[in-house]
Design a protein around this nucleic acid. Structure first.
Lengths: 221, 221
DNA sequence: TTTGAGCGGAGCGCTCCGCTCCGATACGGT
DNA sequence: ACCGTATCGGAGCGGAGCGCTCCGCTCAAA
């Protein structure tokens, strides 16, 4: 932590910071499109950076991906906090966060850290995950308290739902995001309860946070 | 067509037919889980069949996948026809088909022919696709006529929606299917219009069948 | 018992990946 | 202006893992 507090770096140092930002962006795009097996060279190419510079900054593909997960989760937390503070209505905040998460996770880029599941969790990652969990729980707790959210929809549903809405389809990023948002609207319509409606339409056991941890972190070495 | 009209094959021939059925099943499971890059040896292993037998029946991975697509589409057509004939209510037929498609596409196996997009379409495939299109249009037309389906939801939405609901998550097949069905229920709740509701909640341009063709078939050689 | 069509799986050649090494580049102190 | 040097970029190396083939073995049919 604290590597962004450089007071206006200049020259070579500034270039390195720009490179790092570009790398995170490119890594998220490429991993989202092609999965874990995407070649590192493709990430470097899309970031406009040579392999040497990439491997100087991140000594292995695994470390690069782990850092990318942290950045992605931090961005989600920021989006959740923004939605919570800028939208007074709990339902509006909830809906806005989902839309932001689907569309703004990088230009056209689909979702977040679900490269995981095969790379071990660092301390940084578990800390970011804890913060993400807290933010999502704030979001759904608020909607629940307002009585506008389907009763047995949990905070752990959110990442899984986003994952389900982020199909890897080989079209332009804009078109893919448009389709994601199209089907998200369907989900939102189904999630919203109009006051004392009939019991929720959700079937099957809700996921919990432990299940998510197993999905996101490698089982063991 | 017409290779299933054998009058009770016996002995070695019967084993070959069983092998073929097992192969289709295993191929769908493996491709669904791991995508096109899944090793052929894994398909053979899961089918309980040697590589020799597999490559005797299908001279290349591509031909195997093309045949699998045809079988998968034919199964979807059969499920659509069954839903249409067994469920008198158009909405019930529509909902049942979606649930069947998500769960029964092989035990626990996710969806269908979206290995495509990189392998060329054979005549058999375009014929099966045409039949699938007709069946899906019957399904949504019926629901539309009954006035219970969100207005600008088209038949071409169905495969894309199923694809969106079939996230590849590394859990047991049963759990994955349960999650798919959980979020399908949300979609169904959002899709259903109660008579003259407010205008549909769908945004963005609806997909059409031409877009699907581009997704499913290789652009060119 | 003989036979041979059809089965299973070990191995070959090749593609493609993660990662390293080194010449080229341009910043910053003097 | 000039040079020392930290950093950049991409060609190449070793190896993993794939599609596909080849061949010894099994077992229904005669």
């Amino acid at each position: 932590m604290g590597d962004t507090q450089t007071g206006r770096p200049r020259g070579r140092r500034r270039e390195a910071d720009l490179n790092d930002a570009r790398l995170m962006q490119a890594a998220r795009e490429v991993f989202a499109e092609q999965g874990w097996d995407a070649p590192v060279s493709e990430i470097a190419r899309r970031a406009g950076i040579g392999m040497g510079s990439l491997y100087r900054r991140y000594p292995s593909k695994e470390l690069l991906a782990q850092r990318m997960r942290v950045v992605g989760m931090e961005q989600l937390v920021a989006q959740a906090r923004t939605a919570l503070s800028e939208e007074p209505d709990p339902w509006a905040a909830f809906a806005r966060f989902l839309r932001d998460a689907l569309s703004a996770q990088g230009p056209g880029g689909p979702l977040l850290p679900l490269v995981g599941g095969r790379l071990p969790a660092t301390d940084e990652i578990v800390a970011a995950a804890a913060q993400l969990r807290a933010a999502l729980e704030d979001l759904v707790e608020g909607a629940h308290r307002a009585g506008v959210l389907c009763a047995d929809f949990t905070a752990a549903d959110v990442p899984l739902l986003l994952e389900h809405l982020t199909a890897r389809i080989p079209v332009t990023d804009e078109r893919a995001t448009a389709l994601h948002l199209r089907y998200l609207d369907l989900i939102l319509a189904g999630l919203r309860t109009s006051a004392a409606d009939e019991p929720t339409a959700l079937r099957g056991p809700a996921p919990d946070w432990a299940e998510l941890s197993e999905l996101w972190n490698a089982s063991e070495g």
